[in-house]
Nucleic acid binder design. Sequence first.
DNA 1: TATCCCTGATACCCCTGGGGTATGAGTCCG
DNA 2: CGGACTCATACCCCAGGGGTATCAGGGATA
Lengths: 290, 290
Amino acid sequence: MDGLETRELRYFVTVAEELHFGRAAERLNMAQPPLSRAIQQVERRLGVVLLDRDRRGVSLTAAGEVMLVEARLALDAVEAVARRTRRAAAAQPALVLTTKAGASHELLKALLDAYAARPGAVEVEVLLCEIGGQARLLRNGRADVAIMHAPFDVMTGLDSAQIMTEGQVAIVPAAHPLARRPSLTMAEVSDVPDLPIARWPRHDGTYPPGPGPEVHSQSQLAQLVALGRTLLVIPYSSRAWQWPEHVSVPVHDAPLATTILAWPAGARSAALAELVETAEHLSQGESLAR
Amino acid sequence: MDGLETRELRYFVTVAEELHFGRAAERLNMAQPPLSRAIQQVERRLGVVLLDRDRRGVSLTAAGEVMLVEARLALDAVEAVARRTRRAAAAQPALVLTTKAGASHELLKALLDAYAARPGAVEVEVLLCEIGGQARLLRNGRADVAIMHAPFDVMTGLDSAQIMTEGQVAIVPAAHPLARRPSLTMAEVSDVPDLPIARWPRHDGTYPPGPGPEVHSQSQLAQLVALGRTLLVIPYSSRAWQWPEHVSVPVHDAPLATTILAWPAGARSAALAELVETAEHLSQGESLAR
DNA sequence: TATCCCTGATACCCCTGGGGTATGAGTCCG
DNA sequence: CGGACTCATACCCCAGGGGTATCAGGGATA
């Protein structure tokens, strides 16, 4: 009876993102009429109205919102089929590990070294990604395993192993009075009038309201701290990327940050299993001061 | 450059399951030549050989095995798009809860009653499934939430909440000497010569080797116990489906069985959240004897 | 060894349906 | 009221998905 095609999912997602048939068609390298028709066809087949086309543009219905989320997941899964199949056929197997740039430096290095020393070790490629981008890379097959951080990253739909738990430090401008304190509390850092917490874009690209500066990359953030405009609280081990103009101060009562190795649920590669085992082994010795 | 179509995934999965182009084409309601061609096309596009066609039939290459697993997941995800979108548009929202037939009777009833008593409760449809079938129903959108049992069910890729932990009992034929014992140990039940553990089919339909009878449903198993051919160890609360010819005996050192409420990772329905909350509330009182 | 059968691949044809262009229809704005 | 904008409709074309007929190679069996 039904059965959506990948092509139809791509069309719908593009239209839902653009909320404009003309622009969506352009992004899809096709003309607008067949795109309109294809969407209508999907709506007829599902028996569901996905888009409200009334005066002043196009908008998603409630069902359309659901379909957008589900369709993105499905497209990721389809993408993963091709990518993982190709990888499986590649002459020399390899693992792709992804992590946020600048985080868990020492741990990553130690893990790579320890794993490489194992007899059957395969090559491990490191793929740096945007903050919060690891899960998607795992879902669509671009990466096999990720280093993530609780409670910051969402790990739904992934298997995982905890590697390390550690305290957090505040990164403050060296010139600021707080920089001279031996330690701080969450209450002290969360409400500093002249150092408001930076705001990151939401999934739809808009920013939450608030006094802090808008940022979308770590380097921006680092620069803003150096300029004395904001501060941030990060896990102890992430302090590697601090500048000379930064000072890190332990925050006693910050929630513990956990470094986690995560991989797609049900992954069955032997190389991955060995890497995870190495990490768990490693984590027994490790334990950075709180 | 690439981009597999749903149709191509369906074709490949069918061929990979049948390992026979003719039969696969029949199942797909099409002729064999276009199917052969479609698979070749996929292989060319991916640049990967998926099937070995040599003397005496067709077999999967290593890459083909990977593709089979991934393609099934992707097809489930695509199926879920249509199903969840339709459900989202349905006039009255509802939750579909799935569980193994016969397991967690009382708990299920208590959960449904407690949830139904809440102000905003929606209708909860119960979908009974084969053993181990819950995860798939969640993935392809046929169900919203499942009652599962650790350590028996695989919960990869799902979010979950523990509801109840309980001891296990051995279900033995009433006529057997073990039935008169007040309690048993794992060592005693795991190696009874005249009551060998039953064997369940693997995913590929074959059975693991061993002395026990082959079964593929709970009713078969119940009958075999009644006939004095096998025994089984199940959570205390699952004893509901025992027959008059069965006797349940506590097994002291059996691993604790945990009843778990699981749902697709990242599900965002308010009704589901309420059900989970109800279950967690419920679980505070509950605590069946070990 | 010759023959048959079984199975997948190839050759070739047909026609569905996905995509294009032209244009209509409704809405907002100056 | 006319123009600009945007999505829908009308209509055409052809790529490609699917069909039939047939080939090719490897076992079995006599």
